[in-house]
């Protein structure tokens, strides 16, 4: 190979920092990689947050539904007791109501 085939002019001269295309391209790629990593982190955070919120939501909505429709019934028993007065002339009937809230499940549905 003759040295005359490789003259000094075959090399790019110093452009004074004007031709920075290759460097900018590399920076753009790096920026895209960083943006993608940030987006992946955001996706993981959002998914985790949604999962935690959903678990809390089941508890919260369950508690709210328990308060609004608890699924228990109050059994009422009404009996009539007759009370006779000493004179025996008048008789009053007083209803006696007893409530038991021990709860009978009426669950079903969703």
């Amino acid at each position: 190979m003759l040295l005359s085939n490789l003259p000094a002019s075959s090399q790019c001269g110093f452009s004074g920092g004007v031709n920075t295309y290759a460097m900018e391209n590399k920076d753009t790629t790096q920026a895209r990689v960083r943006a993608r990593d940030a987006a992946m982190r955001l996706l993981n955070r959002l998914t985790t947050g949604a999962a935690i919120s959903a678990v809390i939501g089941v508890g919260l909505f369950g508690a709210i539904s328990a308060n609004t429709i608890p699924g228990t019934t109050t059994t009422s028993t009404t009996t009539a007791s007759s009370t006779s007065t000493s004179s025996g002339l008048a008789t009053t009937t007083t209803p006696v109501t007893s409530s038991a809230g021990s709860g009978v499940v009426v669950s079903g549905g969703s």
Binding site: G57, F61, S110
Partner: peptide, 21 residues
């Protein structure tokens, strides 16, 4: 039984929200 029922209702509501999302 009541806890199962409350869980059914809570999970149903959450499922609807998730499905809509």
């Amino acid at each position: 039984n009541q806890l199962l029922w409350y869980t059914t209702r809570g999970a149903g509501a959450v499922s609807l929200v998730l499905l809509s999302a």
